[in-house]
């Protein structure tokens, strides 16, 4: 009884955090405040991963998104002169982004209410899978057989490429 309630309560807390944080991101005038709201929103996302029995992804969310990307965003804001106090909240293309946002929301809503993929769609009230994979099994899947070795290595290659690109871009602006 309480088990269910506690989970539901947690769900609503995380939902408020992530949606409220997201609203804060788009409405705050101050870019740093926006970044802080983003962090709050990302925390909500990490909470969802925990509720979905994916603690590894929750840790990744905190480690990568909050620990690295949020810091990087703050650095980027600081590197951009006088971006901390913007007078304007809405720019001229606000309707375009609003349109895109509304379309995405519509797509998500349709996807959730009328599932169109999978074997005839997922039935409501059915857990996605009763088998919860552990981090250990994830590692075994990466390198244990030959199934996912290629994607695993390509991920490394991709990151190497990203780093080289980042260095080239960043150094060029300075020179």
């Amino acid at each position: 009884m309480l088990e269910l309630n506690a989970t539901t309560l947690a769900f609503f807390v995380f939902a408020i955090l992530s949606v409220g944080g997201a609203l804060g991101v788009v409405t705050s005038r101050n870019l740093i405040h926006g970044a802080v709201y983003l962090i709050i929103s990302l925390f909500g996302g990490a909470g969802f991963f925990i509720l979905l029995s994916a603690p590894f992804l929750a840790a990744v969310q905190v480690l990568v998104y909050i620990g690295a990307i949020a810091i990087l965003i703050i650095f980027a804001v600081m590197l951009t002169r006088s971006m901390t106090n913007m007078a304007e909240v809405v720019n001229r293309q606000w309707w375009l982004s609003a349109l895109v946002g509304a379309l995405l929301l519509l797509m998500l809503a349709v996807g959730v209410i009328f599932p169109v993929w999978g074997d005839g769609g997922l039935l409501p009230n059915q857990p996605v899978s009763d088998q919860v994979a552990t981090t250990d099994e994830l590692g075994a899947a990466f390198v244990g057989g030959e199934d996912y070795v290629l994607p695993f290595e390509v991920a490394s290659l991709l990151l190497t490429g990203a780093m080289i690109g980042a260095i080239v871009l960043a150094r060029d602006t300075e020179a």
Binding site: I32, V36, I39, P55, F56, A59, V60, V62, L63, I66, G67, A68, A70, I71, I74, M78, T134, T135
Partner: peptide
């Protein structure tokens, strides 16, 4: 089950606090 990773992730929040204080 991810205790060690939890430690690493939580430590990275400390960075955030310093950034907040400094800014």
């Amino acid at each position: 089950s991810i205790g060690l990773l939890y430690f690493v992730a939580i430590s990275s929040i400390g960075t955030l606090a310093i950034m907040m204080a400094g800014w």
